[in-house]
């Protein structure tokens, strides 16, 4: 299934982009992200933990970067894979994320071609689409908060325990950090897995 969306972050791409490259920041912005680990130049592994309706959920994932464009429009393509062994399900996402300027803000847009295989796959599209919207909103709000230490509108609807907003010093982009940016956006979708555990 194809998912695409766009959200605004109240900071310029040059501010947002470095933020993406900070693994600590990303970990805080991704709902439920507990680990991010670099395996080699282009492969990363992480763990997403979430608790919804009192059910704790944990899914491993990996990310492999395919290309990075760092010009006016900054873009990253990557393949993400996640797996929930208990639910007998796996997910694969071909993702493209772009950041471009929009006045004083940045527009972040993503396109994903997501395959969801196994038990969760047969629960169908509506739930996934809906959950991905929720997680995206949460991620966008946290990201906005991370960009702007001042109070922001658009309070996250259901913040996780790690939602305390850090003030992050931008650091120069590194190859490692770039990968994390993609992980961030796309993990929002993997978090869908967590949401579904509630089973409604």
């Amino acid at each position: 299934m194809k998912l695409a969306s766009e959200f605004s972050v109240p900071a310029s791409p040059t501010e947002v982009f470095p933020l993406f490259f900070d693994p600590d920041a990303m970990r805080r912005c991704i709902p439920g992200c507990e680990e991010l680990e670099r395996l080699d130049e282009s492969t990363y592994r992480g763990r997403l933990v979430n608790e919804v309706a009192h059910v704790r959920f944990s899914a491993g994932f990996s990310a492999a970067i395919e290309s990075v464009t760092d010009s006016d429009v900054k873009a990253v393509k990557a393949v993400l894979k996640g797996e929930d062994r208990k639910l007998g399900s796996s997910i694969k996402i071909d993702a493209q994320l772009r950041i471009r300027p929009d006045g004083d803000s940045s527009l972040v847009d993503y396109e994903m071609d997501m395959a969801l295989w196994g038990k969760l796959g047969r629960l169908g599209e509506p739930i996934i689409r809906r959950r991905s919207q929720e997680v995206e909103r949460e991620f966008a709000a946290l990201l906005a908060a991370a960009c702007a230490p001042q109070p922001v509108t658009g309070e996250p609807e259901r913040s996780t325990g790690t939602a305390a907003v850090p003030t992050v010093a931008p650091s120069p982009p590194s190859r490692t950090a770039r990968t994390v940016a993609v992980v961030a956006a796309v993990l929002a979708v993997i978090a869908v897995l967590a949401g579904m555990r509630r089973g409604r």
Partner: peptide, 13 residues
Amino acid sequence: LDQGQLVNGTLLD
């Protein structure tokens, strides 16, 4: 089917 996954394989759907 969506990317090889059967999405309506229950009698609810």
